[in-house]
Design a protein around this nucleic acid. Sequence first.
DNA 1: TCGATTGTCTAGCGGTGCTAGGATCGAGTC
DNA 2: GACTCGATCCTAGCACCGCTAGACAATCGA
Lengths: 192, 192
Amino acid sequence: MSVQERKQRERAERERLIVATARELAEKQGWDAVTTRRLAERIEYSQPVLYSHFRGKREIIGAVALDGATEMAEAVRAATSAADGPRARVSALARAYLDFAERNPAVYEALFDLDGGLAFAREDTPAPLKDAFAALLETLGEVAGDGVEPGLFTEVFWAALHGLATLTRAQRLLPELAERRVELLVDRLAVV
Amino acid sequence: MSVQERKQRERAERERLIVATARELAEKQGWDAVTTRRLAERIEYSQPVLYSHFRGKREIIGAVALDGATEMAEAVRAATSAADGPRARVSALARAYLDFAERNPAVYEALFDLDGGLAFAREDTPAPLKDAFAALLETLGEVAGDGVEPGLFTEVFWAALHGLATLTRAQRLLPELAERRVELLVDRLAVV
DNA sequence: TCGATTGTCTAGCGGTGCTAGGATCGAGTC
DNA sequence: GACTCGATCCTAGCACCGCTAGACAATCGA
């Protein structure tokens, strides 16, 4: 059985390589540059090998997105746990979220703009996505205000962050106002 | 000169036809279905004719986006002018915005998700885009609150709406909370 | 050692955005 | 009214895309 185990290990390793390479290529040259041919060349295998790991390009994007969701949840939790008081935590959350989106544009794109074939807000939502939302909920739930459901408040706050992230990336907002936008958002939305 | 004028008129008419057909096709079957071949077939001309009007597919998407911006500005102004008082106007604006995004998903996509080669938040921003932002500013400026610049407040409110619009379209939010999300957003952000 | 299974590759299909170059047509001139 | 010539449009084709069938080689179990 040892031989089979080794092969399985190698296969899993190659799958990680595919996802990591796709992500790297996307961050460096944009998702348009991530073609199955180029990806195959980078991992030094032929094109059809990709299809023995994933059903298609969509699924590869989805895999990058799931990795990203896990990382984003970690980043948010790390930032909020280092802050004192609800106000500081919300502020840290907002900055961590926007910072992640800005530092990993291709991953953020995979998560929200591209079709990675992922389910959301449903029963069959993948665990990393649920957990990323949970990470937001943990901090935002405590500043929802009286009579407002934590889930509802989190959706609205998250939508606002998402809007800022995407419009910023698309250069549709004035760069010099970035910091004040975050402050205004936190001040108005959060009840502390 | 009359012949030349007629030709110019016909050419402008054909250009409108291209944009209208692209939009219609995108709304019915999604932007993926809008290929230069299919578009050419629909307007009953050969493919290269498209390139005598636009530099490429990107520019066609951009043209659809500009049309959409004009319509959205109209929709927002119509909704706000029919409402009494600042609170009602902001609420009407939010609903009109989200309604437009939901009713014209392909146009909204062309405006904000796809690359239509348009400039934003800069000097060379096309007039319809500036005007659409101005339409938001007219109503939102009066509820920015003391010491908050209207432009800054409008950017934040707009980002929140944009986030709601895109996350809703991507089915990432709970549908049954839609109405309460808008109410919460307006209540918290606007100073009335 | 041999057959079967697994793994990988080459080659190719139908599609994409885009363009070069030739045919056609019609306006302006003699 | 015939002719020239420029504008207009189309056919054909390029390089690339995602994806897959089928040939081939390596490895496994008997």
